[in-house]
Protein backbone atom coordinates (compact mmCIF):
# COMPACT_ATOMS: atom_id res chain seq x y z
CA UNK A 1 0.00 0.00 0.00
CA UNK A 2 2.75 2.43 0.89
CA UNK A 3 6.21 2.55 -0.59
CA UNK A 4 8.00 1.89 2.66
CA UNK A 5 6.20 -1.32 3.54
CA UNK A 6 6.59 -4.32 1.28
CA UNK A 7 3.50 -6.10 2.49
CA UNK A 8 0.24 -4.72 3.79
CA UNK A 9 0.29 -4.72 7.60
CA UNK A 10 -2.15 -7.11 9.23
CA UNK A 11 -5.09 -6.17 11.43
CA UNK A 12 -3.01 -7.14 14.46
CA UNK A 13 -0.54 -4.37 13.73
CA UNK A 14 -3.32 -1.76 13.61
CA UNK A 15 -4.83 -3.13 16.82
CA UNK A 16 -1.47 -3.00 18.53
CA UNK A 17 -0.81 0.57 17.41
CA UNK A 18 -4.28 1.58 18.60
CA UNK A 19 -4.04 -0.10 22.00
CA UNK A 20 -0.51 1.17 22.62
CA UNK A 21 -1.44 4.74 21.77
CA UNK A 22 -4.63 4.45 23.83
CA UNK A 23 -2.53 3.53 26.87
CA UNK A 24 -0.08 6.33 26.03
CA UNK A 25 -2.98 8.82 25.88
CA UNK A 26 -4.36 7.56 29.16
CA UNK A 27 -1.03 7.92 30.98
CA UNK A 28 0.33 11.15 29.52
CA UNK A 29 0.68 13.94 32.04
CA UNK A 30 2.63 17.08 31.34
CA UNK A 31 3.12 17.67 27.62
CA UNK A 32 3.88 15.72 24.46
CA UNK A 33 7.40 14.67 25.43
CA UNK A 34 6.14 12.63 28.36
CA UNK A 35 4.65 10.23 25.78
CA UNK A 36 8.17 9.16 24.88
CA UNK A 37 9.02 6.61 27.63
CA UNK A 38 6.00 4.38 26.98
CA UNK A 39 6.19 4.68 23.16
CA UNK A 40 9.89 3.85 23.25
CA UNK A 41 9.23 0.85 25.44
CA UNK A 42 6.56 -0.68 23.21
CA UNK A 43 7.51 0.33 19.66
CA UNK A 44 11.31 0.31 20.01
CA UNK A 45 12.12 -2.22 22.74
CA UNK A 46 9.22 -4.67 22.68
CA UNK A 47 8.03 -4.76 19.04
CA UNK A 48 11.21 -3.46 17.40
CA UNK A 49 9.13 -1.73 14.74
CA UNK A 50 11.24 1.42 14.76
CA UNK A 51 14.67 2.38 16.02
CA UNK A 52 15.59 4.68 18.87
CA UNK A 53 16.95 7.26 16.42
CA UNK A 54 13.76 7.19 14.37
CA UNK A 55 11.53 7.85 17.35
CA UNK A 56 13.64 10.87 18.36
CA UNK A 57 13.52 12.19 14.80
CA UNK A 58 9.75 11.70 14.85
CA UNK A 59 9.50 13.77 18.02
CA UNK A 60 11.61 16.49 16.41
CA UNK A 61 9.31 16.72 13.38
CA UNK A 62 6.11 16.41 15.43
CA UNK A 63 7.09 19.28 17.71
CA UNK A 64 7.72 21.57 14.75
CA UNK A 65 4.36 21.09 13.03
CA UNK A 66 1.19 23.05 13.76
CA UNK A 67 -1.51 21.56 15.95
CA UNK A 68 -1.64 19.16 18.86
CA UNK A 69 1.84 17.70 19.40
CA UNK A 70 0.51 14.43 20.81
CA UNK A 71 -1.55 13.68 17.69
CA UNK A 72 1.26 14.88 15.41
CA UNK A 73 3.56 12.39 17.11
CA UNK A 74 0.93 9.65 16.97
CA UNK A 75 0.37 10.18 13.24
CA UNK A 76 4.11 10.17 12.48
CA UNK A 77 4.71 6.95 14.40
CA UNK A 78 1.60 5.20 13.08
CA UNK A 79 2.45 6.19 9.51
CA UNK A 80 6.01 4.96 9.89
CA UNK A 81 4.82 1.56 11.12
CA UNK A 82 1.73 0.99 8.97
CA UNK A 83 1.21 3.77 6.43
CA UNK A 84 -1.71 6.21 6.28
CA UNK A 85 -4.25 3.90 8.00
CA UNK A 86 -1.66 3.31 10.73
CA UNK A 87 -1.36 7.07 11.25
CA UNK A 88 -5.12 7.50 11.54
CA UNK A 89 -5.56 4.57 13.93
CA UNK A 90 -2.70 5.88 16.05
CA UNK A 91 -4.16 9.40 16.28
CA UNK A 92 -7.57 7.99 17.23
CA UNK A 93 -5.91 5.90 19.93
CA UNK A 94 -4.10 8.80 21.58
CA UNK A 95 -7.09 11.18 21.48
CA UNK A 96 -9.87 8.84 22.59
CA UNK A 97 -8.88 8.47 26.29
CA UNK A 98 -8.86 12.27 26.75
CA UNK A 99 -12.27 12.52 25.17
CA UNK A 100 -13.76 9.69 27.22
CA UNK A 101 -12.28 10.96 30.48
CA UNK A 102 -13.27 14.59 29.96
CA UNK A 103 -16.94 13.88 29.15
CA UNK A 104 -17.86 12.82 32.70
CA UNK A 105 -15.21 15.01 34.37
CA UNK A 106 -16.66 18.16 32.77
CA UNK A 107 -20.02 17.42 34.37
CA UNK A 108 -18.55 17.08 37.85
CA UNK A 109 -15.39 19.14 37.54
CA UNK A 110 -16.02 21.18 40.69
CA UNK A 111 -15.49 17.96 42.63
CA UNK A 112 -12.03 17.54 41.07
CA UNK A 113 -10.57 21.01 41.41
CA UNK A 114 -8.99 21.39 44.87
CA UNK A 115 -9.85 17.81 45.79
CA UNK A 116 -7.03 16.80 48.19
CA UNK A 117 -6.93 13.19 47.00
CA UNK A 118 -6.67 14.25 43.34
CA UNK A 119 -3.92 16.72 44.22
CA UNK A 120 -2.09 13.92 46.02
CA UNK A 121 -2.40 11.66 42.98
CA UNK A 122 -1.00 14.42 40.78
CA UNK A 123 1.93 15.04 43.13
CA UNK A 124 2.79 11.36 42.94
CA UNK A 125 2.40 11.21 39.16
CA UNK A 126 4.58 14.28 38.59
CA UNK A 127 7.36 12.67 40.64
CA UNK A 128 7.09 9.57 38.42
CA UNK A 129 7.08 11.59 35.18
CA UNK A 130 10.18 13.51 36.29
CA UNK A 131 12.01 10.26 37.02
CA UNK A 132 10.83 8.70 33.72
CA UNK A 133 11.99 11.64 31.58
CA UNK A 134 15.40 11.79 33.28
CA UNK A 135 15.77 8.05 32.84
CA UNK A 136 14.79 8.34 29.17
CA UNK A 137 17.51 10.92 28.52
CA UNK A 138 19.96 8.63 30.30
CA UNK A 139 18.84 5.61 28.26
CA UNK A 140 19.13 7.46 24.94
CA UNK A 141 22.52 9.02 25.61
CA UNK A 142 24.58 6.39 23.76
CA UNK A 143 22.75 6.76 20.46
CA UNK A 144 22.07 10.48 20.46
CA UNK A 145 24.79 12.16 22.49
CA UNK A 146 28.02 11.26 20.77
CA UNK A 147 30.86 13.56 21.61
CA UNK A 148 31.26 17.05 22.97
CA UNK A 149 29.42 18.83 20.14
CA UNK A 150 26.26 16.81 20.83
CA UNK A 151 26.46 17.47 24.58
CA UNK A 152 26.82 21.16 23.82
CA UNK A 153 23.77 21.14 21.51
CA UNK A 154 21.78 19.32 24.18
CA UNK A 155 22.81 21.75 26.88
CA UNK A 156 22.14 24.85 24.78
CA UNK A 157 18.69 23.53 23.81
CA UNK A 158 17.79 22.79 27.43
CA UNK A 159 18.93 26.23 28.61
CA UNK A 160 17.08 28.05 25.81
CA UNK A 161 13.79 26.30 26.58
CA UNK A 162 14.01 26.02 30.34
CA UNK A 163 15.70 29.26 31.41
CA UNK A 164 15.00 31.64 28.54
CA UNK A 165 11.49 30.37 27.73
CA UNK A 166 12.12 29.98 24.00
CA UNK A 167 9.41 28.04 22.12
CA UNK A 168 10.85 24.54 21.44
CA UNK A 169 9.84 24.90 17.79
CA UNK A 170 12.52 27.56 17.21
CA UNK A 171 15.09 25.48 19.05
CA UNK A 172 14.39 22.48 16.80
CA UNK A 173 14.45 24.64 13.67
CA UNK A 174 17.78 26.05 14.86
CA UNK A 175 19.07 22.50 15.23
CA UNK A 176 17.79 21.66 11.73
CA UNK A 177 19.54 24.68 10.20
CA UNK A 178 22.75 23.89 12.06
CA UNK A 179 22.56 20.24 10.96
CA UNK A 180 21.84 21.15 7.34
CA UNK A 181 24.72 23.63 7.31
CA UNK A 182 27.05 21.04 8.78
CA UNK A 183 25.87 18.47 6.23
CA UNK A 184 26.61 20.88 3.36
CA UNK A 185 30.08 21.65 4.69
CA UNK A 186 30.81 17.95 5.13
CA UNK A 187 29.54 17.14 1.63
CA UNK A 188 31.82 19.82 0.13
CA UNK A 189 34.81 18.52 2.03
CA UNK A 190 33.93 15.01 0.88
CA UNK A 191 33.64 16.23 -2.73
CA UNK A 192 37.02 17.94 -2.61
CA UNK A 193 38.84 14.76 -1.66
Amino acid sequence: MTEENNSRPGIKVYLNIFSTMFVVGLFTFGGGLSMLPQMKRVFVEKRRWITEEEIIDIFAVSQSLPGVIASNTAVMVGHRIAGVPGGLVSALGVVLPSFLVLLPVTLFYRAFIDNPVMLGVLRGIRAAVTALLLYTVWGLRKGSLRGVADLLLCGVAAVLVLLLGVNPVWVILGGLLFGAGRAVVRARKGGAD
Binding site: G30, G31, L33, S34, L36, E53, I56, D57, F59, A60, Q63, R123, R126, A127, V129, T130, L133, L134, T136, V137, L140, R141, G143, S144, L145, A149, D150, L151, L153, C154, G155, V156, A157, A158, L160, V161, L162, P168, V171, I172, G174, G175, L176, F178, G179, A180, R182, A183, R186, A187
Partner: peptide, 30 residues
Protein backbone atom coordinates in the same frame (compact mmCIF):
# COMPACT_ATOMS: atom_id res chain seq x y z
CA UNK B 1 22.48 10.84 3.58
CA UNK B 2 21.87 14.61 3.67
CA UNK B 3 18.69 14.09 5.69
CA UNK B 4 20.19 11.65 8.18
CA UNK B 5 23.24 13.88 8.51
CA UNK B 6 20.96 16.82 9.32
CA UNK B 7 18.86 14.80 11.76
CA UNK B 8 21.97 13.72 13.65
CA UNK B 9 22.29 17.34 14.79
CA UNK B 10 18.60 17.56 15.71
CA UNK B 11 18.69 14.50 17.99
CA UNK B 12 20.88 16.12 20.67
CA UNK B 13 18.53 19.11 20.52
CA UNK B 14 15.53 16.85 21.20
CA UNK B 15 17.49 15.30 24.07
CA UNK B 16 17.89 18.83 25.41
CA UNK B 17 14.13 19.34 25.12
CA UNK B 18 13.41 16.13 27.03
CA UNK B 19 15.90 17.21 29.69
CA UNK B 20 14.21 20.61 29.87
CA UNK B 21 10.79 18.94 30.20
CA UNK B 22 12.09 16.68 32.97
CA UNK B 23 13.66 19.57 34.87
CA UNK B 24 10.62 21.78 34.25
CA UNK B 25 8.14 19.24 35.56
CA UNK B 26 10.61 18.35 38.29
CA UNK B 27 10.93 21.95 39.42
CA UNK B 28 7.16 22.44 39.37
CA UNK B 29 6.58 19.37 41.51
CA UNK B 30 9.54 19.84 43.86
Amino acid sequence: PAVSDTMSAVRPVVMGLILAAALGIGYESL
